[in-house]
Design a protein around this nucleic acid. Structure first.
Lengths: 116, 116
DNA sequence: CAGTATCCAATCCGATACTG
DNA sequence: CAGTATCGGATTGGATACTG
């Protein structure tokens, strides 16, 4: 999650922040359904384990993309939400989504040609 | 390099194609310096081993982002270049770079606040 | 509920040596 | 030159059981 070509590639740092495993589905889920609890995220991000979800949430919190709110109740309640910094990613994710919609078919086609 | 949240996140597939490890520095190098040989890439992507470089080039070739040309000479000469499909990534990488330039300082700051 | 602790499997990766 | 083969080590991840 760190060595990605270093100095040579000017977007390596950004990629490490935004696209390490699981971060995008988590951000996406928070964006789609808004502020939610740990258990909600666990349910909505298919296949993730509590260990890994915790790791990624901590990373996102540390990077300032997600905010965590702890309510000292019984049982405890913790809520996560996207910060303004995290929300500033929306156009970028939009571009990514658009590029995929346009070009994933070409990629699939290239794969079939290569494999076949 | 495959499970990233699946159905729940619409850009998971694109991310797997574009941002698996080493792919961005390789694409960047090809974009910056144009068509070049295996050894050139090896030198310009710092820290990559020939094994991994081969793996990633094959993946990029399979996905249609990079084209490989083999010249049957002695010694053999192989050249790699970006395809039009690969070149279509430029605006996207530009946006990524711009987002990073604007926001990486905020991320660094958030990290210092979290760690300190 | 919201995690943490533990263990194990899979993967990845770097280094190196070798080949057509 | 442009890879491939092999190996060991490090990291990552899933499953599960447990705790304040």
């Amino acid at each position: 999650m760190e060595i990605r070509g270093l100095e040579a590639c000017p977007i390596a740092d950004v990629i490490d922040v935004l696209f390490s495993r699981w971060t995008t589905p988590i951000l996406w889920g928070l964006h789609e359904r808004g502020r939610q609890r740990f258990g909600d995220l666990e349910r909505h991000v298919p296949g993730i384990s509590p260990k890994v979800l915790t790791q990624r949430l901590r990373q996102l919190e540390r990077d300032g993309l997600v905010a965590r709110t702890y309510h000292a109740e019984v049982p405890p309640r913790v809520e996560y939400e996207i910060t303004p910094l995290g929300a500033s990613l929306e156009p970028l994710f939009g571009s990514l989504s658009a590029w995929g919609a346009t070009n994933m078919p070409s990629i699939e086609k290239a794969r079939r040609a290569y494999d076949g």
